[in-house]
Design a protein around this nucleic acid. Structure first.
Length: 210
DNA sequence: TTGAGGATTCTC
DNA sequence: AGAATCCTCAAA
């Protein structure tokens, strides 16, 4: 009989986890295709991904993995389709989907999403959010809205072994996603490796203008 | 052992 | 514009 990973029983019927092969490619190929996919937790929280950035390991001076594997970035060097969670600025968590082949250290940062279910639970853990579009319109906000911290580093987004998964509900990626420079980095600042859904209100505010 | 910097967010 | 806040890693 055919080997197939069973979808978790808490997942709505028409929400299909993205397969391992989806992630096992270069992050610049994966990133724009993650737009309009859904990130989902086993308590019902779900949000549509509207902004992402690719980080490409040894070819990318802005990547955490640029100088090779360390304790912090070890998950990035593992199997594609797992969640790489990092801590920064003393208080914020960032969530990435590991891509490529084992050992490459590449992935896609999930920068912003539009909540579609479990908004009450998100608001409860995002007290600073005044409006719906404040819930997950930034990498730290998205992680906080979904309760993503160090505990979930390494979670498998394909099997949903730890109650978090990325799925398709049938909506395709945008035909013309907006590409541009990544935000908040100090090296490789011109790589046009950030993509977002055009004119979407849940995209992050972007770099502070000077 | 140290300390600069950080894939940010919030409030003033 | 400035503060918050602490982990990581290279070694200035």
């Amino acid at each position: 009989m055919r080997q197939q990973t069973a979808a978790p029983d808490w997942l709505p019927a028409h929400w299909t986890p993205l397969p391992r092969a989806f992630y096992r490619r270069h992050p610049t190929a994966v990133a724009p295709e993650l737009l309009n996919k859904l990130i989902v937790r086993d308590d019902g929280r779900a949000a549509r991904i509207v902004e992402v950035e690719a980080y490409a390991g040894s070819e990318d001076p802005a990547a955490h993995s640029y100088r090779g594997q360390t304790a912090r970035n070890a998950t990035m060097f593992g199997e594609a389709g797992h969640l790489y969670v990092y801590f920064t600025y003393g208080m914020h968590w960032g969530s990435n989907a590991v891509c490529g082949e084992v050992g490459e250290g590449v992935g896609v940062l999930l920068r912003a999403a539009e909540p579609v279910a479990g908004l009450g639970a998100m608001q409860a853990v995002r007290p600073a959010a005044k409006r719906e579009r404040d819930l997950a319109s930034g990498p730290g906000k998205l992680s906080q809205a979904f309760g993503i911290t160090r505990d979930l580093d390494g979670a498998d987004l394909v099997s949903a072994d730890r109650g978090i998964v990325i799925v398709s509900d049938g909506m395709p990626p945008p035909e013309a996603p907006v590409a541009g420079p990544r935000i908040g980095i100090s090296r490789a600042v011109d790589f046009p490796w950030r993509w977002h859904v055009a004119d979407h209100p849940h995209v992050s505010a972007g770099p502070r203008r000077r």
